[in-house]
Amino acid sequence: MSTGLLAQYAVIALAVVASIAVVMRKQFPNATRRLRIALALPLLREGAPAWFKPLGRAIAPPARVAGKGCDGCDNCGPD
């Protein structure tokens, strides 16, 4: 396999992964959040190497802030 063909395959693979990520974030936000949590937790556990922690923090989704209409069930209702 030539280097040019390998580079083309790598670019196509990156484009496919990026498009999957965009679709997941737009169409399945809760599943994407759960996946990010599942990937980040092992990296943030006690006893993990020091270089895992910044990577885990980058992968972890931002914390949710409860609003006035939130009862803690993860389904924010109207105020």
Rank of each mutant, 00 (worst) to 15 (best):
A60K: 03
R33C: 09
K53G: 00
L5N: 13
A13T: 05
A38M: 12
A15M: 15
Q8I: 07
A66M: 03
A21K: 06
K26T: 14
A10H: 09
G56C: 02
K53W: 03
G72F: 08
A18H: 03
R64H: 09
P61H: 05
V11T: 11
P61G: 07
N75A: 11
F28H: 14
I20Q: 10
K26W: 14
A66T: 03
D79Q: 04
S19W: 10
A60F: 05
P54Y: 12
G67L: 09
A15E: 13
R34L: 15
K68R: 12
A38G: 12
C73Y: 00
D79P: 11
N75I: 12
V23W: 07
C76I: 13
G47S: 08
A50M: 04
P78I: 07
A18R: 06
V65C: 01
Q8G: 07
G47Q: 09
V22E: 11
A63Y: 03
V22Q: 11
A50N: 02
C70N: 12
Q27L: 15
N75R: 11
L6H: 00
D71A: 09
L55Q: 01
W51M: 02
F28P: 01
K53Y: 02
A48Q: 11
A15N: 10
G72H: 06
A13C: 04
L39N: 09
L35S: 13
S2W: 01
A31L: 14
K53M: 01
R57S: 03
C70K: 00
L39C: 14
A10F: 06
G69N: 10
P78R: 07
A66C: 04
A7R: 12
L35P: 00
A40V: 02
V23S: 04
K53T: 07
S19N: 14
G72M: 05
N30S: 13
I59E: 00
V11M: 08
A58V: 09
I37L: 15
I20E: 08
A63N: 01
A10W: 03
A48W: 01
I37V: 15
A48Y: 01
D74N: 10
R57Y: 10
R36Q: 14
I59T: 01
R25H: 13
A58T: 08
G77K: 14
A63H: 02
A60R: 03
C76L: 13
A63D: 04
A13W: 00
A63V: 07
L35K: 07
G77E: 13
K53R: 12
G69H: 06
T32G: 12
W51H: 06
G67C: 11
A48E: 08
P49N: 01
F52H: 13
C73P: 00
Y9A: 13
P42W: 03
L43T: 06
A66L: 09
L5S: 14
N30C: 05
I20Y: 09
L35I: 11
Y9C: 10
V17H: 02
A40G: 04
M1L: 11
P42V: 03
I59Q: 01
I12L: 13
P54G: 10
Q27C: 15
R36N: 08
L6W: 00
P78W: 04
R25L: 15
C70V: 04
I12S: 08
